Computed example of a mutant assay.
Amino acid sequence: MKYLEKNVDLGLLIVRLAVGGLMLFHGISKMMHGVGFIEQVVSGAGLPHFITYGVYIGEVVAPILIIGGLATRAAAGIFAFNCLVATLLVHTSMIFTLGAEGGWALELIGLYFFGAVALIFTGGGKYSISNKYIWD
């Protein structure tokens, strides 16, 4: 049953494409429409203004690196940190809340976060640009 053999590297490629690709849409939206809302949240939390632009690293640069499999673990770490910051700044009240459909109210950001955490532990696999390097 050769066709049923597991292919971990193909699975990692699919995770990279899904997690990185879907988050990239959020980043593209912020590039097109600006980060005004995030700027308000950051200043409202009393944080320095420059932190606002970290969203471009977490939602554009890191996803592109994850998709290509270049420095996957580091990019996934940045990505996961971005998810944590978004949760703490915007979604804290929803952490222990169910959504209208009965699922966790933060299931989307949760899937992004845990997908990134999985990539921190696994790296990008053999179908990645940096599969030969220890920092993959």
Rank of each mutant, 00 (worst) to 15 (best):
F37T: 08
L10A: 05
W135T: 08
G36Q: 14
L10T: 03
V15S: 05
V41D: 00
S43D: 06
V55N: 06
I95H: 07
F50H: 13
M23T: 05
A71Q: 10
T52Q: 12
A71W: 15
I109T: 08
G34W: 13
L106Y: 08
V85C: 03
G11W: 05
W135R: 13
P63L: 05
V35D: 05
G46V: 01
L98I: 02
I67K: 13
G123A: 09
I129C: 14
E101D: 15
V41W: 07
L12W: 10
S29I: 11
L47M: 14
A74I: 15
E107P: 07
V60Y: 09
G27N: 09
I95P: 03
L10E: 00
A62P: 04
G103E: 13
G125V: 02
S128Y: 10
I66R: 06
I67D: 10
G11E: 07
G11P: 03
E101K: 14
M31A: 06
F37Q: 14
E39S: 11
G11D: 08
I28T: 10
V60I: 14
N82Y: 12
I67Q: 12
F37D: 12
I57Q: 08
S128M: 10
C83R: 00
N82F: 13
E59Y: 08
I109C: 02
G54S: 12
A71L: 15
K126E: 11
G44S: 10
L70Q: 05
I95W: 12
E5W: 11
Y127S: 01
Y127Q: 03
V85Q: 02
L70N: 03
I57L: 15
L65E: 09
G27H: 07
A75R: 03
I57A: 14
F113R: 02
K6V: 13
F121M: 10
I64F: 01
L106E: 04
G68N: 13
H91Q: 09
G125M: 07
G58L: 12
K6F: 11
Y133L: 15
A80D: 04
I67C: 11
V8L: 06
E39P: 00
L12F: 09
Y53N: 02
V61M: 11
N82V: 00
I14S: 01
L65W: 14
F79Q: 04
A75Q: 00
F81C: 07
S128P: 06
L108N: 04
G11I: 04
D9P: 01
F81A: 14
V55L: 12
E59L: 09
W135G: 01
K2V: 06
L70F: 15
A116I: 10
L24W: 05
T97Y: 07
Y56H: 05
V41I: 09
Y3Q: 08
Q40N: 11
V35S: 07
L119D: 05
H49D: 13
K30D: 01
L13P: 04
Y56G: 01
A105C: 09
T122V: 06
D9Q: 01
G44E: 12
K6H: 02
I129N: 13
E107D: 15
K6R: 00
A62F: 10
I51F: 15
I14Q: 01
T52N: 11
G69L: 08
T52E: 10
M1F: 15
Y133N: 10
V8N: 01
A100R: 15
G46C: 00
V42C: 03
